[in-house]
Structure formats: C-alpha cells, structure tokens
Write a protein that binds this DNA or RNA. Structure first.
Lengths: 114, 114
DNA sequence: CAGCATCCTAACAGATACTG
DNA sequence: CAGTATCTGTTAGGATGCTG
C-alpha cells in the first residue's frame, strides 16, 4: 500500500498561498502594472489610468496592497490634498516573478490553441 | 505634463492574469501540491489527502484544472470505476515558477515580522 | 468508486451619492 | 483631491443527499 502525502487546509500559511492572496482580486494586477510602468502616481492618476475602476475598489485595493507591504502611500498635507503611491522595494522584486509566471501563461495559451 | 500609461480591463487577456486564474480558488493549490508530491492519484486518494474538501469542490476544481490543461484525467472503464489524475507536462513546468513565487512570499512574510 | 443536483450562505464587487 | 457610506447584485464556496 502506498503512502500518500496529505495536505491539511491548516497549511495555508504556505508561502505560495500567502503570496497569491496578496495579488488576488480583480484590480490588484492592474494597479501593480500601472505603478511599475509609471513609477509614482497620485490617486487620481491611478484612477484615470485604470479604466473602469471605481473609487471604492481603488481605495480598498490600494489599502490592501499597502497593508501587504508592496505599495507605498505618502500623504502630503496640502490643500488640495495630495497622496502618492508607488511600489515598495519588495513590491518591485515581485515583478520578475510575475514575468516568469507570464511566460508560463503564454506557453499555456499556446498549447490550448493547438 | 507627464504621459501616463493606462491599463484597460479589456487587456485581461494578459498572460499573468490568465495564469493566475488557472490556479485561483481555494482548492487548486492543494490539489496541485498533492499531485506533485504523489504523482498519479485516484479520485478517492485525492479526497483523502486533502483534508476538508467536499466531493463537489474536488470534482469542480479537478474539472477546471483539466480544462486548463494542467491536469490529466484518465478513466478506466472497470467495475468498480477507477479514475486517475496526474499533472500534465505543462502542469509540471508550473512548479518551478510557484517555487519562485514561494521564495518571494517567504521574503514578504519575513519583512512583515520585523 | 467517482461523481452530480439542489439549495444555501457569505464574501466580493458595482452603482450612486456624499464629505473633510 | 482623495477618499467614505450605503445599498444592491453577483459569484465562490459549502452542506446534504442521490446515482450510474
């Protein structure tokens, strides 16, 4: 009888699952994308550059990304208010990983077209 | 005035988004994990090795993974029925990418503990 | 043994309007 | 300018029981 390795759901402290949660959600990748393309952006610049996003989703997605530690939020107490967002250092280090992921995705798309 | 690169939601044919969808969902990673640890497994072996999963979720997750092309399903027409699941070739090539992802996740966990 | 059908709930996401 | 608040719709996931 073969010995089967099990997986307990308690193990979802698994680093892959953890990393995945950080970028899951409809708007996280788009936000990361425009930030890595443009560097630092203000709230309204982000909003304009991500077509279709609402204030609610932009705000909550940014907050989660900030809490995850991959987006910086800098608030200037001016009138009118100014808030700038950018990728953190570890946020930037995610990019090459996503690139590998993209390559694999491309292969998969290629295979499915056969 | 700076030129801002935009992101249209229509672009979600983006390979990263595509790849992400394939492994999203509560049970996909656990399934991939036990398959890569054990090689080929039968339906009930999978069920036993993933604690807490229901028949419905196992069935639908396996079907999606199969449709994505990263899991093989082989049905033997015997009595009692036997169905075996394993990773496809491209499914196996996902593993090193997930490994990179895991390393990044570990770093992030490390940073957040500081 | 390997599943499918049905019903149910909770989390996610969108629309709209309002505020410091 | 940079968000909140509220209300509503949609989808993911779960419980339970049944079938070839």
């Amino acid at each position: 009888m073969k010995e089967i390795k099990t997986f307990s759901i308690k193990d979802d402290l698994c680093p892959v699952g953890f990393a995945l949660k950080v970028i899951e959600g409809k708007w996280k990748l788009p936000i990361l994308w425009v930030l890595c393309q443009n560097g630092t952006l203000r709230y309204n610049e982000l909003k304009k550059s991500i077509l279709g996003i609402t204030n609610m989703m932009l705000t909550s997605s940014l907050k989660e990304l900030e809490e995850s530690g991959i987006v910086n939020r800098v608030q200037y107490n001016e009138i009118p208010p100014r808030v700038e967002y950018s990728l953190t250092e570890i946020g930037n280090r995610l990019l090459p990983v996503l690139d590998e992921f993209a390559k694999w995705g491309q292969e998969l798309i290629g295979i499915k077209k056969l």
